[in-house]
Design a protein around this nucleic acid. Structure first.
Lengths: 199, 199
DNA sequence: GCCACCATACCGACTGGTAGGTATGTCGGC
DNA sequence: GCCGACATACCTACCAGTCGGTATGGTGGC
């Protein structure tokens, strides 16, 4: 249970997670067998079930890993001492970048999350809800300060924006011309402009 | 193959499609058995395999059915004799409405499409690409006419917007306060404002 | 400095159940 | 009496999870 991963964490767990993330992203959770995962990771099923409770567990770990990263980054940006519009812009651009930097995890998260059993799904939904609300609060703050238009629901705008983010995996190719940073800036700009108070 | 559905189409095919769409939307493609589908439709597997080649076939039909509806509506709106900004606004609002009117199909489409085998997936992707391009052309037209800003890629804006649309199924509830029409108007407004030329 | 003891890390054959698909039969209409 | 529209029984492949086992390295007693 409480495996002491002190010092340098042995790579087997991470190799398993990486393999699972890759395969889940490519073929989907249900069409990927545990056998394929362990073969890609260069171990056997015994090793996988030594570190993870189930196939579902792998999926949840992938999701949590991504969300932890993104939550921390959002928290850092949202808490900075900048005007709220700049914080929103930075947060919006950053979530695009971090999504593209962890695209396998991200694709798994939005495509296969619903395959988790009830309890695990509830946990995961709670974490995602918190993230959503943290972002939405930024918009609401801007609305309260009068620097963002108030005739659009902050909740709706947040949903719309994250929809665009979650959709990244279905068209982005790392070998294309667009860089994660440039996509992030464009997305953030579209959001900010959409929320500009009418002049 | 070429089943003659002359006259009034018997309802069995449709009942099967409806049952499949519902169950795929609820539990996902992989976690839904053919047995469950036919039970919900009130028939047996013999009937299903009489009308559909495979479980995959059902999935593809669901996708095609939705996209056909949306393509026709987009074509009608895009071809109307209105200023391009109004056509874009109407098209954007309408795709939200039609998505929410066919939410089961829509959820299946964006959650389970990747489970199709190569060939079917290629077909489906082609159809979706055409739809995407038709919408994008509206934005490009507005840019050419100088009524939409040109410093944002029409392709990126289209991806971002459709992301928001595809994401609808993960938060929308029919019993909430928001109506499909109001959501559509808000989404369209955010898109149009985001693409407004800077004044 | 050696050995008994044990925990951790991993291996891989096996199984029970499930689910997609098929082969064959039946029945009613034209 | 044929053909489309189903029903029923069955086959087979696959797969998550299990379980007994092995290897390795640390530890403490002497």
């Amino acid at each position: 249970m409480a495996t002491a991963t002190r010092g340098a964490a042995p790579p087997v767990q991470e190799r398993l997670l990486a393999a699972a993330s890759r395969l889940f992203a490519e073929r989907g959770f249900a069409l990927t067998s545990v056998q394929e995962i362990v073969e890609r990771a260069g171990v056997t099923k015994g090793a996988m079930y030594h570190y993870y409770a189930s196939k579902d567990d792998l999926l949840q770990q992938i999701y949590t890993r991504l969300l932890d990263v993104q939550s921390a980054r959002l928290e850092a940006i949202a808490g900075a001492g900048l005007p709220v519009r700049e914080r929103l812009r930075a947060a919006a651009a950053d979530v695009v970048v971090s999504t593209l930097e962890n695209l396998d995890d991200a694709m798994v998260s939005w495509r296969s999350m619903h395959m988790l059993p009830q309890e695990r799904l509830a946990q995961v939904r709670l974490e995602r809800r918190r993230y959503h609300e943290r972002f939405r609060a930024l918009i609401e703050q801007g609305q309260d300060q009068g620097v963002l238009r108030t005739d659009v629901s902050a909740d709706l705008a947040t949903h719309q924006f994250f929809g665009g983010v979650h959709h990244l995996g279905s068209w982005y190719h790392a070998d294309g011309e667009l860089t994660p940073a440039s996509i992030g800036e464009t997305f953030a700009d579209l959001l900010l402009r959409g929320l500009d108070p009418s002049g």
